[in-house]
Write a protein that binds this DNA or RNA. Structure first.
Lengths: 156, 156
DNA sequence: GTACGCCTGCACATGTTGCCCAGTGATCAG
DNA sequence: CTGATCACTGGGCAACATGTGCAGGCGTAC
């Protein structure tokens, strides 16, 4: 479950140069190819590395506007709302949370005007009582994992 | 900038089987290898595909708790706060937003108790006036891009 | 009609993968 | 101490993929 230092280096290396092969990886790490391969396999079957899917930039796809919407759900409608939101392509992510809202979702849109359409589509559903939206202006820290990997592979 | 149907199929294919090679890809798509290669190169230099970094699961690293914190910042302290948050490994993502809060950040922690430590570290900084945190219970829609790619590659 | 971009199909040298093996050193139970 | 297990090394092999280059077809824009 926890990862050791070599695992950490593997992940960092892959993060920096994702298209690297196992052989090149083993050379950089100074271990035998079999070792690198075994470690990588283990990380994947452990679920530490979930995959190597392409990281697609919504902005480059024509969706430069990101927003977060906090939703309040009518009692007992959670499952319906989840199913509804899953059908909206502009909903990139959905969490159920504690706190003032019941759900938090990440949206994208083609423009601020288009965001209105997306929000209408998201909110135009019976189980949603209230929604409050925050439009993202800047993204000073894009989704990252490397500092955490470093932390995890040092401490353990 | 916009992507066509073939680009869309390339991304979908890569999302499903990320470790696929260009040759295999061209076979599946029914195009020449050079074409697949050229398209892939273009998608990457366009920035549509930002990379193929490993998708690491924080839970598998020992950080099973996720939370979102909304921060209110003292006027003019934005840059300092951003720099501060960038140094905290448990801050996976940071956005500046319109709306009630000024910033929204995604946090992870080793446990609910550990979340307190993380929040203290995040909030224990002069420019932050107020923070409200929502702990994630479930994640019915994990970060996804495929429906959007489908939409974008059909419509254009 | 001509230049251009995009695609096809082919070829080559080189590098990589998946798979096999034998051997070493550390750890641990009996 | 003995034997078992495990992770790692280092090597070898056939099959396959990659980067690259090139000639030619086809539709579009001007």
């Amino acid at each position: 479950m926890a990862i050791d230092h070599l695992d950490g280096r593997i992940i960092l290396l892959l993060a920096r140069e994702p298209r690297i092969g196992v052989l090149e990886m083993s050379r950089r790490l100074g271990v035998a190819r079999g070792t690198a391969q075994a470690r990588l396999d283990r990380l994947q079957s452990n679920g530490v590395i979930r995959g190597f899917g392409p990281q697609v930039d919504p902005a480059a796809l024509g969706y430069p506007v990101t927003a977060f919407a906090t939703l309040q759900i009518r009692q007992g409608q959670g499952a319906d709302v989840r199913a509804h939101l899953a059908t909206v392509p502009e909903v990139l992510e959905l969490h159920t949370t504690t706190g003032t809202g019941d759900m938090l979702c990440r949206l994208v849109a083609r423009s601020n005007a288009d965001l209105q359409r997306v929000i209408d589509r998201v909110v135009g559903f019976d189980g949603i009582v209230r929604a409050s939206t925050a439009i993202v202006m800047e993204n000073p820290v894009p989704l990252r994992i490397i500092p955490l990997v470093e932390q995890a592979s040092l401490g353990e």
